[in-house]
């Protein structure tokens, strides 16, 4: 064996400056964005950016298409709203309660769904999310059609008043950026490599001795927890938790965002959420039929940019380089 030969070629993984620069740019953009846009709009956008990024952790990096993520998003929103309104805890505890609820839900739905693959996996997640929807419709604490509303956002750590818009803005921006860093870390970690291997070839990963079910469940729960964080932030932002957050349309919307932006890319969900929320906002006042325009956009994306906006750009760059 020519170990010497091997030695000359081993190159350590270089620490790329790109991620650090990207996150620095993101922070900069978030700092100046409120000067140009209505902060509430930017905050709503951030909630969906986080939602789509958490969803992409599962779809893009593990290859699992969940059609039930609304359950985690809306479930966490309900619990956070309930904690603020009824338990009257500080917002950070309300958010933690929401995330915990999403993790528990993720464990239950995930444990059942990962036994099947492909379309069956998607159908099980959808079915269980619908069961949760009807639970929310009937359960007394959600107030049915009315939802939970009319509560104060409270003071973060008992000190910072989140009813001040800019305080809330910096809080949501910080949580979103930290979560995106966390997702980036998970994806680029030893654990993330195994998820990628599962996505690329599941039987092969099993034959290498990995219990892929456990890895899938872990990824599912991580995705559910981060989705819950997004839902909790949204409830805090709008002081409102409603059936729309747990409805299947919400699961569909996050799939759209991720696909339009580009699955399996870190920036994809950010761009996709931006496009979708931006269009919804613009179309709401334009008098155009919103769902038809969104549906048309989706079809164009699927037909023309199969990798999504970011995916196509990255592909173009890669081809130019070599």
């Amino acid at each position: 064996m020519s170990a010497k030969h091997a030695d000359t070629i081993v190159m350590p993984t270089r620490k790329s400056p790109v991620p650090a620069l990207t996150f620095a740019a993101l922070i900069l953009v978030l700092a100046i964005l409120p000067a140009f846009f209505y902060p509430i709009f930017v905050m709503k956008l951030l909630c969906f950016v986080l939602f789509a990024a958490a969803f992409n952790l599962l779809l893009g990096y593990t290859g699992l298409l969940s059609f039930g993520h609304a359950a985690f998003f809306g479930g966490a929103a309900y619990v956070t709203a309930h904690a603020l309104k009824v338990w009257q805890v500080t917002p950070e505890f309300a958010i933690l309660a929401g995330v915990a609820a999403a993790i528990v839900l993720g464990l239950i739905i995930g444990a059942v769904a990962i036994r099947r693959q492909g379309i069956y996996f998607a159908m099980i997640t959808l079915a269980m999310a619908q069961m949760f929807y009807f639970f929310c419709l009937q359960a007394p604490f959600t107030n049915g059609e009315d939802g939970i509303q009319g509560f104060s956002r409270g003071h973060l750590f008992g000190i910072i008043d989140l009813n001040e818009t800019m305080n809330l803005y910096y809080f949501i921006a910080a949580v979103t950026v930290l979560s995106l860093v966390l997702i980036w870390r998970i994806v680029n970690s030893p654990f993330g490599q195994i998820l990628r291997a599962i996505r690329e070839n599941e039987p092969r990963t099993i034959s290498l001795g990995y219990s892929v079910q456990r890895f899938k469940l872990a990824a599912f729960v991580m995705s559910a927890g981060l989705t819950g964080l997004a839902g909790a932030l949204k409830a805090l932002l709008f002081q409102f938790a409603t059936l729309a957050d747990v409805a299947w349309q919400m699961s569909g919307e996050v799939i759209l965002m991720t696909l339009i932006g580009g699955i399996g890319t870190l920036a994809g969900p950010v761009v996709g959420a931006g496009i979708l929320i931006g269009m919804q906002n613009f179309l709401a006042t334009s008098g155009l039929p919103v769902t038809m325009v969104l549906g048309g956009t989706f079809m164009v994306c699927v037909l023309l940019f199969r990798r999504g906006v970011v995916g196509e750009i990255l592909n173009l760059l890669e081809r130019r380089r070599g």
Binding site: R185, N188, S189, P190, F191, G192, Q193, M222
Partner: peptide, 10 residues
């Protein structure tokens, strides 16, 4: 080295 989701690829 398969479960560390907090460590770098390095």
């Amino acid at each position: 080295m398969s479960r560390q989701f907090w460590r770098s690829l390095i």
